[in-house]
Computed example of a mutant assay.
Amino acid sequence: MSPSLPGHTVLVTGATSGIGYQTARLLAESGATVLVHGRTTEEAHAAVDRLVSLAGVQADRLCPFGADFARLEEVEQLAARVLAEHPHLDVLVNNAGMAAPERHTVTVDGNEIAFQVNFLAHYLLTSLLEPALTTEPGGRVVNVSSSLHRTGSIQWADPNRARRYSRLAAYAQSQLALTVFAADPRVTAVSVHPGICATSLLPLYAHQGVAPAEGAAHVVRLCAPDTEIVNGAYYDRDQRVTPAPAATEPRTVKRLNKLADVLVGHTA
Protein backbone atom coordinates (compact mmCIF):
# COMPACT_ATOMS: atom_id res chain seq x y z
CA MET A 1 0.00 0.00 0.00
CA SER A 2 1.19 3.53 -0.78
CA PRO A 3 1.74 5.85 2.17
CA SER A 4 -0.49 8.86 2.75
CA LEU A 5 1.40 12.10 2.14
CA PRO A 6 -1.13 14.94 1.87
CA GLY A 7 0.40 18.32 2.56
CA HIS A 8 3.94 17.06 1.97
CA THR A 9 6.29 18.61 -0.57
CA VAL A 10 8.92 16.38 -2.18
CA LEU A 11 11.62 17.18 -4.73
CA VAL A 12 12.58 14.21 -6.92
CA THR A 13 15.69 14.65 -9.05
CA GLY A 14 15.89 12.74 -12.31
CA ALA A 15 12.12 12.38 -12.37
CA THR A 16 11.58 12.28 -16.13
CA SER A 17 12.14 8.54 -16.59
CA GLY A 18 12.71 5.23 -14.84
CA ILE A 19 12.63 5.02 -11.06
CA GLY A 20 12.46 8.79 -10.65
CA TYR A 21 9.39 9.11 -12.85
CA GLN A 22 7.61 6.29 -11.04
CA THR A 23 8.62 7.75 -7.68
CA ALA A 24 7.07 11.08 -8.68
CA ARG A 25 3.90 9.27 -9.78
CA LEU A 26 3.53 7.29 -6.56
CA LEU A 27 4.21 10.33 -4.40
CA ALA A 28 1.64 12.45 -6.22
CA GLU A 29 -0.91 9.64 -6.02
CA SER A 30 -0.25 9.59 -2.27
CA GLY A 31 -1.25 13.25 -2.03
CA ALA A 32 2.16 14.93 -2.04
CA THR A 33 3.12 17.99 -4.03
CA VAL A 34 5.98 16.78 -6.21
CA LEU A 35 8.70 18.96 -7.67
CA VAL A 36 9.58 17.10 -10.86
CA HIS A 37 13.19 17.67 -11.87
CA GLY A 38 14.55 17.01 -15.33
CA ARG A 39 17.81 17.79 -17.12
CA THR A 40 15.98 20.56 -18.99
CA THR A 41 12.80 22.49 -18.30
CA GLU A 42 11.32 21.01 -21.48
CA GLU A 43 11.97 17.44 -20.26
CA ALA A 44 10.45 18.25 -16.88
CA HIS A 45 7.32 19.74 -18.47
CA ALA A 46 7.01 16.69 -20.75
CA ALA A 47 7.19 14.36 -17.73
CA VAL A 48 4.49 16.36 -15.96
CA ASP A 49 2.31 16.16 -19.06
CA ARG A 50 2.75 12.36 -19.16
CA LEU A 51 1.94 12.02 -15.47
CA VAL A 52 -1.27 13.97 -15.98
CA SER A 53 -2.42 12.46 -19.28
CA LEU A 54 -1.23 8.87 -18.90
CA ALA A 55 -1.10 8.29 -15.15
CA GLY A 56 -4.06 10.47 -14.21
CA VAL A 57 -2.13 12.51 -11.65
CA GLN A 58 -3.71 15.83 -10.67
CA ALA A 59 -1.82 18.65 -12.38
CA ASP A 60 -1.85 20.87 -9.30
CA ARG A 61 0.32 18.34 -7.47
CA LEU A 62 3.18 18.65 -9.95
CA CYS A 63 5.77 21.41 -10.44
CA PRO A 64 8.41 21.05 -13.19
CA PHE A 65 12.02 22.16 -12.63
CA GLY A 66 14.96 21.95 -15.00
CA ALA A 67 18.70 21.77 -14.23
CA ASP A 68 21.59 20.01 -15.91
CA PHE A 69 23.62 18.36 -13.14
CA ALA A 70 26.68 18.43 -15.40
CA ARG A 71 26.67 22.19 -14.70
CA LEU A 72 26.90 23.16 -11.03
CA GLU A 73 25.70 26.66 -11.82
CA GLU A 74 22.36 25.17 -12.87
CA VAL A 75 22.19 23.19 -9.61
CA GLU A 76 22.60 26.45 -7.70
CA GLN A 77 19.85 28.05 -9.79
CA LEU A 78 17.57 25.07 -9.12
CA ALA A 79 18.12 25.36 -5.37
CA ALA A 80 17.46 29.11 -5.43
CA ARG A 81 14.17 28.63 -7.25
CA VAL A 82 13.05 25.82 -4.95
CA LEU A 83 13.85 27.89 -1.85
CA ALA A 84 11.95 30.87 -3.27
CA GLU A 85 8.86 28.90 -4.28
CA HIS A 86 8.88 26.15 -1.62
CA PRO A 87 10.62 27.43 1.52
CA HIS A 88 9.54 24.24 3.34
CA LEU A 89 10.54 20.91 1.85
CA ASP A 90 9.63 17.64 3.53
CA VAL A 91 11.74 15.28 1.44
CA LEU A 92 14.52 15.49 -1.12
CA VAL A 93 14.93 12.35 -3.24
CA ASN A 94 18.42 12.36 -4.75
CA ASN A 95 17.70 10.03 -7.65
CA ALA A 96 19.26 11.56 -10.79
CA GLY A 97 22.06 9.40 -12.11
CA MET A 98 23.96 8.26 -15.15
CA ALA A 99 26.23 5.45 -16.19
CA ALA A 100 29.81 6.59 -16.52
CA PRO A 101 30.73 6.92 -20.21
CA GLU A 102 33.20 4.62 -21.95
CA ARG A 103 35.73 7.43 -22.27
CA HIS A 104 36.91 9.66 -19.45
CA THR A 105 34.75 12.79 -19.57
CA VAL A 106 35.14 15.99 -17.57
CA THR A 107 32.39 18.57 -17.01
CA VAL A 108 32.72 22.33 -17.49
CA ASP A 109 33.29 22.45 -13.71
CA GLY A 110 36.35 20.23 -14.06
CA ASN A 111 34.93 17.07 -12.48
CA GLU A 112 34.60 13.53 -13.86
CA ILE A 113 31.05 13.54 -15.14
CA ALA A 114 29.62 10.53 -13.27
CA PHE A 115 31.12 11.72 -9.99
CA GLN A 116 29.53 15.13 -10.52
CA VAL A 117 26.10 14.05 -11.77
CA ASN A 118 25.68 11.13 -9.36
CA PHE A 119 27.21 12.67 -6.26
CA LEU A 120 28.61 16.22 -6.31
CA ALA A 121 25.44 17.79 -7.73
CA HIS A 122 23.37 16.08 -5.05
CA TYR A 123 25.86 17.11 -2.37
CA LEU A 124 25.57 20.73 -3.47
CA LEU A 125 21.79 20.62 -3.88
CA THR A 126 21.27 19.04 -0.45
CA SER A 127 23.56 21.58 1.19
CA LEU A 128 21.77 24.50 -0.44
CA LEU A 129 18.32 23.13 0.42
CA GLU A 130 19.21 22.47 4.07
CA PRO A 131 17.21 25.54 5.24
CA ALA A 132 14.04 24.23 3.57
CA LEU A 133 14.57 20.69 4.86
CA THR A 134 15.11 21.81 8.45
CA THR A 135 12.43 24.50 8.87
CA GLU A 136 10.38 21.89 10.73
CA PRO A 137 11.27 18.57 12.37
CA GLY A 138 11.02 15.51 10.16
CA GLY A 139 12.69 16.72 6.97
CA ARG A 140 14.66 13.95 5.30
CA VAL A 141 16.79 13.04 2.32
CA VAL A 142 16.54 9.74 0.45
CA ASN A 143 19.57 8.92 -1.68
CA VAL A 144 18.86 6.39 -4.44
CA SER A 145 22.14 4.50 -4.33
CA SER A 146 23.32 1.14 -5.61
CA SER A 147 24.56 -2.19 -4.37
CA LEU A 148 27.60 -1.51 -6.57
CA HIS A 149 28.79 0.97 -3.94
CA ARG A 150 30.28 -2.09 -2.22
CA THR A 151 32.72 -2.52 -5.12
CA GLY A 152 33.78 1.11 -5.11
CA SER A 153 36.66 3.06 -3.64
CA ILE A 154 37.13 6.80 -3.47
CA GLN A 155 40.39 7.84 -5.08
CA TRP A 156 41.19 10.70 -2.74
CA ALA A 157 44.25 11.89 -4.64
CA ASP A 158 42.57 11.52 -8.02
CA PRO A 159 38.75 11.58 -7.64
CA ASN A 160 38.42 12.42 -11.33
CA ARG A 161 40.30 9.21 -12.16
CA ALA A 162 42.39 10.99 -14.74
CA ARG A 163 45.33 8.62 -14.30
CA ARG A 164 43.41 5.35 -14.47
CA TYR A 165 39.84 5.39 -15.75
CA SER A 166 37.30 2.58 -15.81
CA ARG A 167 33.63 3.34 -16.34
CA LEU A 168 32.50 0.72 -13.82
CA ALA A 169 35.00 1.92 -11.21
CA ALA A 170 33.94 5.53 -11.79
CA TYR A 171 30.27 4.63 -11.38
CA ALA A 172 30.93 2.59 -8.24
CA GLN A 173 32.94 5.44 -6.74
CA SER A 174 30.05 7.85 -7.31
CA GLN A 175 27.60 5.47 -5.62
CA LEU A 176 29.90 4.91 -2.66
CA ALA A 177 30.26 8.66 -2.23
CA LEU A 178 26.48 9.12 -2.33
CA THR A 179 26.06 6.38 0.28
CA VAL A 180 28.73 7.87 2.54
CA PHE A 181 27.03 11.27 2.22
CA ALA A 182 23.88 9.89 3.88
CA ALA A 183 25.80 9.76 7.16
CA ASP A 184 26.36 13.54 7.10
CA PRO A 185 24.77 14.88 10.31
CA ARG A 186 23.38 18.12 8.87
CA VAL A 187 20.17 16.62 7.46
CA THR A 188 18.60 13.25 8.31
CA ALA A 189 19.29 11.01 5.33
CA VAL A 190 19.23 7.39 4.23
CA SER A 191 20.35 5.50 1.15
CA VAL A 192 18.46 2.80 -0.69
CA HIS A 193 19.32 0.30 -3.39
CA PRO A 194 15.92 -0.04 -5.12
CA GLY A 195 16.76 -3.37 -6.73
CA ILE A 196 17.84 -4.18 -10.26
CA CYS A 197 15.29 -2.38 -12.42
CA ALA A 198 14.72 -2.18 -16.15
CA THR A 199 16.11 1.32 -16.63
CA SER A 200 18.92 2.85 -18.69
CA LEU A 201 21.37 1.70 -15.98
CA LEU A 202 20.40 -1.97 -16.30
CA PRO A 203 23.46 -2.96 -18.42
CA LEU A 204 25.67 -2.17 -15.43
CA TYR A 205 23.93 -4.87 -13.39
CA ALA A 206 22.28 -7.61 -15.42
CA HIS A 207 20.29 -8.49 -18.53
CA GLN A 208 16.90 -8.38 -16.84
CA GLY A 209 15.34 -6.23 -14.17
CA VAL A 210 12.02 -5.60 -12.46
CA ALA A 211 9.68 -2.78 -13.45
CA PRO A 212 10.87 0.68 -12.32
CA ALA A 213 7.63 1.10 -10.34
CA GLU A 214 8.71 -1.78 -8.10
CA GLY A 215 11.97 -0.06 -7.29
CA ALA A 216 10.20 3.26 -6.82
CA ALA A 217 7.93 1.76 -4.16
CA HIS A 218 10.97 1.15 -1.94
CA VAL A 219 12.00 4.80 -2.36
CA VAL A 220 8.53 6.13 -1.60
CA ARG A 221 8.26 4.04 1.58
CA LEU A 222 11.29 5.85 2.97
CA CYS A 223 9.70 9.22 2.16
CA ALA A 224 6.73 8.57 4.43
CA PRO A 225 6.85 10.26 7.86
CA ASP A 226 5.51 7.13 9.53
CA THR A 227 8.57 5.21 8.35
CA GLU A 228 11.11 5.75 11.10
CA ILE A 229 14.64 6.16 9.81
CA VAL A 230 18.08 6.43 11.35
CA ASN A 231 20.53 8.90 9.86
CA GLY A 232 23.01 7.17 7.58
CA ALA A 233 21.04 3.91 7.33
CA TYR A 234 21.27 1.88 4.13
CA TYR A 235 18.44 -0.20 2.68
CA ASP A 236 18.49 -2.96 0.10
CA ARG A 237 14.94 -2.58 -1.18
CA ASP A 238 12.79 -2.82 1.97
CA GLN A 239 15.43 -4.30 4.28
CA ARG A 240 17.87 -2.29 6.33
CA VAL A 241 21.30 -3.85 5.88
CA THR A 242 24.89 -2.94 6.65
CA PRO A 243 26.52 -0.88 3.87
CA ALA A 244 30.16 -1.01 2.85
CA PRO A 245 32.37 -0.32 5.91
CA ALA A 246 33.55 3.05 4.56
CA ALA A 247 29.97 4.32 4.39
CA THR A 248 29.66 4.77 8.14
CA GLU A 249 33.20 5.76 9.12
CA PRO A 250 33.12 9.29 10.64
CA ARG A 251 36.59 9.99 9.28
CA THR A 252 35.49 9.06 5.76
CA VAL A 253 32.36 11.24 6.04
CA LYS A 254 34.43 14.26 7.10
CA ARG A 255 37.05 13.61 4.44
CA LEU A 256 34.41 13.29 1.72
CA ASN A 257 32.68 16.50 2.80
CA LYS A 258 35.99 18.34 2.68
CA LEU A 259 36.72 16.99 -0.80
CA ALA A 260 33.21 17.77 -2.07
CA ASP A 261 33.37 21.33 -0.73
CA VAL A 262 36.52 21.88 -2.75
CA LEU A 263 35.12 20.34 -5.93
CA VAL A 264 31.85 22.31 -5.84
CA GLY A 265 33.64 25.54 -4.98
CA HIS A 266 32.37 25.56 -1.38
CA THR A 267 29.28 27.46 -2.53
CA ALA A 268 27.00 25.78 -0.02
Rank of each mutant, 00 (worst) to 15 (best):
L168R: 15
A170E: 07
S127A: 14
L72V: 03
N111L: 09
Y123Q: 05
V75H: 08
T107G: 01
V52P: 09
A114E: 02
A32V: 13
T126P: 04
Y165D: 06
T41M: 02
G139W: 11
E74T: 15
G31D: 07
A100V: 02
I113Q: 11
G66V: 00
G66S: 05
R167I: 02
L62E: 10
G138F: 12
L89S: 11
P131G: 06
L176W: 08
V52N: 05
Q116P: 15
S146P: 15
D49S: 14
A162C: 03
C63A: 10
L54H: 12
E130P: 15
G31Q: 08
H122L: 06
N160K: 10
L89I: 13
V117K: 09
D158V: 13
T151K: 15
V93E: 08
R140F: 11
A157V: 07
S145V: 13
A132F: 06
G97V: 01
V141T: 09
F69P: 08
S147A: 07
V106I: 13
C63F: 15
A44I: 00
A132I: 00
R71V: 00
H86V: 12
R39N: 01
L124W: 09
N111T: 05
M98G: 02
F65H: 14
F65M: 01
D68P: 15
L54Y: 01
A132R: 08
F115W: 13
T105D: 05
Q77R: 15
H104M: 05
L124V: 03
P159S: 07
E42W: 11
Q173L: 04
V75K: 07
G97S: 05
T105M: 05
A47L: 05
P159H: 05
F65Q: 13
D109A: 10
E42Y: 13
S153W: 15
S127D: 09
L120F: 14
A157C: 05
V144L: 11
V117S: 05
L176C: 04
